[in-house]
């Protein structure tokens, strides 16, 4: 298990978190390369299907990044994301799947460091958690 490298899929909103991830780059904040970023216009446009599909296909974690509460450029998209993720976590928990693989984080365009730290922490946590059990199911 020592060389387990978790795979993370991230859905980032255009205005805040994606830009924050760019800022992490311009300021050279280092974080592990386990993350694959998908660009969407708003965290409110992250369908539960995307998250479920990512997990079923074997991603070890899913990160959803949006603007801080009150800062959504589409008024309320991040609140919609928050409610959706809360429900989704509940359902996954019911199915015996830990909710800790789904992270919803508010990271603004000026928080490059926070973005890097978030990814670093998430990779660490997922390493402790081990691979996504669904992946093993497929492999079996």
């Amino acid at each position: 298990m020592a060389d387990f490298e978790p795979r993370i899929v991230a859905f980032l909103c255009h205005w805040c978190t994606y830009t924050g991830a760019d800022l992490a780059g311009t300021t050279r904040q280092q974080y592990p390369p386990n993350i694959r970023i998908i660009h969407l216009m708003c965290s409110g446009a992250v369908d539960s299907i995307y998250v479920l599909k990512a997990l079923i296909d074997g991603a070890d974690g899913v990160l959803i990044g949006g603007c801080h509460p009150g800062d959504c450029h589409y008024q309320t998209g991040n609140y919609k994301a928050r409610r959706r993720v809360a429900i989704l976590k509940g359902i996954l928990e019911q199915m015996g799947f830990t909710e800790h693989r789904i992270w919803l984080k508010w990271i603004s365009a000026s928080e490059g460091k926070l973005f890097a730290d978030t990814v670093t922490k998430m990779v660490d946590d997922l390493k402790k958690m081990g691979p996504n059990p669904m992946k093993q199911l497929w492999n079996a």
């Binding site: 760019d22 800022l23 780059g25 311009t26 050279r28 904040q29 974080y31 592990p32 390369p33």
Partner: peptide, 9 residues
Amino acid sequence: REQCAFVHE
């Protein structure tokens, strides 16, 4: 660049 080369040196 920003989301890959610059952050995974």
